[in-house]
Design a protein around this nucleic acid. Structure first.
Length: 539
RNA sequence: GCGCCUGUAGCUCAGUCGGAUAGAGCAACUGCCUUCUAAGCAGUGGGUCAGGGGUUCGAAUCCCUUCAGGCGCGCCA
């Protein structure tokens, strides 16, 4: 619907010889009496053309093709308000019913290659809530970008090298020693939690006392590999059960084995961004606005995590993506500048990489925040939450906030099956419609537009607005906009459902209303699919 | 101390890179099940957009500043 208006606006601008390269903005007016859709275009153009907005608006209004409009008004400081013809709205409805899911296909991406890297949790422990939120957002983002014409590739970067996995190995080694009766304290920096003991037990079952009597240095390889692979396996299972699929899992170790870490530093060195100080090699990130330069090779000759991350980004860039999206936990925000610096030093435009920060999740139980500490091993895992609350609810709630905003996750509300729980509210609308179709002895056919009342026309307009919401979610890379829309439209439907009977004595009216239901069902199903949430037929 | 993020109704949060009279859900209160699922609906009240300055036709949105909260400031990852 909005695209039809935009097309006419663009054609009109062309006719008037006005250049406007941005995506033309259409919005839902604050007040319904203003019209169906409006645009602040004239006010934007006023700045460029240095003419009064009303004058521009008038010129647009008199030159635009008016076939689909009931009326076009200029209001306020220069808004152009459009009211669509009833016939046009109904033709769009017909089109939606005919095309089904194809109606929602947009070609914004035009095949541009986008890579989304997300979760990428260290394989040193189970996934927790924050990872879950990142997983839900990343997958939803992948879904909507795919659906809108991007060539999307999702990826998980496995930090299977370096200090953290070594610490994991050490932790399991010590647990193993304790299992063998040795009285050793678990050092502070080590990982705790029951899963460490489990890993030790499993190793004991395989190797018996063999490992216990050896020094860590002799057997660290065995322990580290066994442990991180086991954990990675569980992470993969958890993500799969959470409905998150990665196209590619890439290993940090591999970047060392292929020499990419080394070569990327050489490349930076050639460009003059590397220097030596205090026996270490530093990257000049301050050139790009970082607050200090960063070490890439330590004085003991080993690489920092940053070094392999540079190699990873170089690797991504060389794979020819047009856009890279990194989804990180908000606690990594201090890391953004140096990665952006490295990426720029490697020669790509910083606008090609976007880093989305996922804010913290606070878990509430009985109205009280649950304290989480990774060190103490007292954190709530994604697995626990999935098992307790269900995959759909968990995902949906993760998507009810802007990624940038703190999320309060109330377990009690999530478990409630009522209006307080937004997922059920939306799913229930879908199930209700499905149930109507089961009860009806007929289907959506012989649609008679004359039978729609004003309430229904309003609802149809709202349904047809979905592509605009979807487009905006894509352009802004913000899946939560779909979540909000779905709650909104579900509410409209529940209200409609109570006021009017779909199945009634009048066959023509019944069939016409079934078409409205069908259209809404298509939208609900599509929206939920984008979020990765099921649209149940029965509840 | 420095940097980043946040501050919108009692609570949880939307709000289009500056636009029209700032919205929703929950909670509170009042009603609605012999009719397609009450996991639902209808109605009522609720605001100094943290405070203060500035920028302009116009600010919740941009700039400065104060306050409050979160996070980050390793040759850790």
């Amino acid at each position: 619907m909005h695209l039809d208006i935009r097309d006419r606006l663009n054609a009109c601008l062309k006719k008037l010889n006005i250049e406007f390269s941005k995506t033309l903005e259409l919005e839902i007016p604050k007040n319904e009496s203003f019209g169906d859709l409006s645009t602040p275009l004239a006010m934007d153009l006023a700045k460029i053309l240095k003419k009064p907005p009303k004058q521009i608006a008038e010129s647009i209004v008199s030159n635009i093709e008016k076939d689909i409009f009931e009326s076009i008004d200029i209001a306020g400081a220069g808004f152009i308000n459009f009211r669509l013809k009833r016939n046009f709205i109904l033709s769009k409805l017909t089109s939606l019913l005919e095309k089904g899911d194809d109606f929602f296909i947009l070609d914004i991406g035009k095949g541009r290659k986008v890579q989304i890297e997300f979760v990428s949790a260290n394989p040193t422990g189970p996934l927790h809530l924050g990872h879950g939120r990142g997983a839900a957002v990343g997958q939803a983002l992948a879904n909507i970008l795919k659906e809108s014409g991007y060539d999307v590739s999702t990826e998980y970067y496995i930090n299977d090298a370096g200090r953290q996995v070594e610490l994991l190995g050490m932790s399991v080694y010590i647990a193993l020693q304790r299992l063998g009766g040795k009285d050793i304290k678990m050092p502070d920096e080590c990982y705790k939690g029951e899963y460490i003991n489990e890993l030790a037990k499993e190793l004991y079952q395989i190797y018996g006392n063999e490992l216990i009597n050896k020094d860590f240095d002799e057997i660290n390889g065995i322990i580290i590999d066994f442990s991180y692979k086991k954990i990675l396996n569980e992470i993969q299972t958890d993500l799969k059960d959470f409905g998150v699929i990665f196209d590619k899992w890439i290993s940090e170790r591999k970047l060392y084995h292929t020499g990419e870490v080394q070569s990327s530093i050489i490349k930076l060195k050639e460009k003059g961004y590397i220097y030596e100080k205090d026996g270490a090699l530093w990257f000049r990130s301050t050139v790009f606005g970082d607050e200090k330069d960063r070490v890439v090779v330590k004085s003991d000759g080993s690489y920092t995590y940053f070094a392999s991350d540079i190699a990873y980004h170089k690797n991504k860039i060389e794979r020819g993506f047009d856009e890279l999206i990194n989804i990180w936990g908000a606690d990594h925000h201090g890391y953004i500048k140096r990665v952006m610096s490295a990426v720029q030093a490697l020669g790509i435009d910083s606008s090609q990489i976007k880093i989305l920060l996922i804010q913290m999740v606070n878990l509430l139980r009985d109205g009280m925040p649950v304290q989480m500490s990774k060190r103490a091993g007292t954190f709530v895992t994604l697995r626990e939450l999935m098992d307790e609350i269900g995959v759909d609810t968990t995902k949906f709630i993760f998507l009810t906030r802007r990624h940038d905003s703190h999320l309060e996750f109330d377990v009690e509300i999530a478990k409630k099956q009522s209006q307080e729980n937004p997922v059920f509210y939306v799913q229930y609308a879908h199930a209700r419609i499905n149930s109507i179709f089961e009860k009806a002895n007929t289907e959506c056919k012989n649609i008679d537009f004359a039978l729609f009342n004003d309430h229904e026309i309003r609802l149809i307009k709202k349904i047809l607005l979905y592509p605009m919401i979807f487009e905006f979610a894509v352009l802004m890379r913000e899946p939560h906009r779909i979540t909000f829309y779905l709650q909104d439209i579900a509410g409209e439907f529940h209200s409609y459902y109570h006021k009017y009977r779909v199945i009634n004595e009048d066959k023509a009216l019944t069939e016409t209303r079934l078409c409205l239901c069908k259209a809404l069902m298509l939208v609900l199903k599509h929206g939920l699919r984008m979020l990765g949430v099921k649209a149940p037929e029965k509840m």
